[in-house]
Design a protein around this nucleic acid. Sequence first.
RNA 1: GGAGAGGUGGCUGAGCGGUUGAAGGCGCUGGUUUCGAAAACCAGUUAAGGCGAAAGUCUUACGAGGGUUCGAAUCCCUCCCUCUCCGCCA
Length: 462
Amino acid sequence: MATASLPAGCWPYTSPDAPHPLRHTAAECRRSRMIDLAHLRKDPAFFSKAWGDRGASVDVDGLLALDALVRELKTASESLKAEVNQASKSIAQAARSGGGAGAVDAAKERARQLGDQAKATDERRVALEQTLTDRLLLLPNPCHPAVPLGADSAANRVVDTWGQAPTFAFTPKAHYDLGPALGIIDFDRAAKLSGSGFVALRGAGARLSRALISWFLDVHTGTHGYVELAVPYLVQSKMMVGTGQLPKFADQFYACRDDDLVLIPTAEVPVTNLHAGEILEAEQLPVRYTAHTPCFRREAGAAGVGTRGMTRVHQFDKVEIVWLTTPERSDADLLSLRGHAETLLRQLGLHYRVLELCSGDTGFSSAHTYDLEVWSPGTSSWLEVSSCSTFGDFQARRAGLRYRAEKGGKPAFLHTLNGSALALPRCLIALLETYQLADGSVAIPAVLQPYLGGLARIGSCA
RNA sequence: GGAGAGGUGGCUGAGCGGUUGAAGGCGCUGGUUUCGAAAACCAGUUAAGGCGAAAGUCUUACGAGGGUUCGAAUCCCUCCCUCUCCGCCA
């Protein structure tokens, strides 16, 4: 890992005594991680193509050679260990039956030598296996066969569009003009507190944000049947390995200086990892959770491009929905999950479209992603308010999420899915811009009014 | 943060240097019995990985990591977590 180039305070954090999140413990190595190595051995061409479709060039032969060497050393050290164990048993017997001290000492010496050999062999194996693991953890999830091929966002496919762009008898304003004028969004004072890329909400703006969070959660728990969670916003960095943010995207989130804790970039991290290392029973599935959390993102390298206002901020609120499900139904579940996110936009009366991301634009951990983009009348652009993905067994492997298909059966990796439903700032943007009136006030959609004490219109609250 | 007590299989709970991957109990699975059920009895019941077509076999795991030893659940060190008391605090 090249750590020198990372900004201070960023993962890996600076405490010298801390465990390195990528130095897996023996217990963690015992679990299968990352991609399915057995599958890679059997069908390297599949992976070559899959990674190629994503624009990643991978030395598959090198991986296979390394894997073969690791297994060779493993076999060797294990048979040496077996000999040591045999020898130890006969020493015990000899000692018990009062055999000659000389014979026992000779046997001990032989066992010691075998033990040293086994240890040396195994140390080599551990080092090579760690190298292999480090490389495998950087490889993206192969895309689902349904994903359209393409190099970048230009190849994404618009699969649905709902509603129509609102029309105005006046020139609609952007949220970064509307909000401050109404006294409900304060960029300047947020920058004073935390620098650029932060936003403060005030009065009806703050309450509108809270109303959206409450309403989203109520719809998911009440209508869609999710279980609500309230989870930690700081997690150990190995959880970020579980969901795939680490090791590759270490520069994209905030870390603590003295503790192995990072601020979550999305609720996906704590919620998906909630059952990490567990074996669930088939009848428990699908597990469906929803959670509201703030999300913290450094957005390194994103400054300046279409980031005016609060379309891209370092801290924002989001309601997330997460499924742990079976491989048989995960494809269908992705559509259900996407539907749950879409429902919210429809009930808010916001014009939006659905994108099916192409192979080159699909996120590192995802196998298949739909983005929901809401229309921003003030800037005449589409804003991503949700990303709905199935990860196949990719995260399940990394996080150790398994289930038992039938009683007494072998545990197998389950499938994980998640989606934003929805991300707050861009919903606020779309609401303010879509429902703005000629006098600069903003109407409130009917579904939200009960959450705002009956407020139907936000006027100036300067 | 300080002091003490602990962390063993799905659960409970023994073991405190050598057939202990782990007694006993509970639960679970299959069988016997029964018209059926309960009870009783018998048998089985952790996971990961290597080799193997399979049967099987070997390795590893008693919170985690390291050490002592021919051999560690058992002894030593470090760390983590839980509980109790004290301190502090929303």
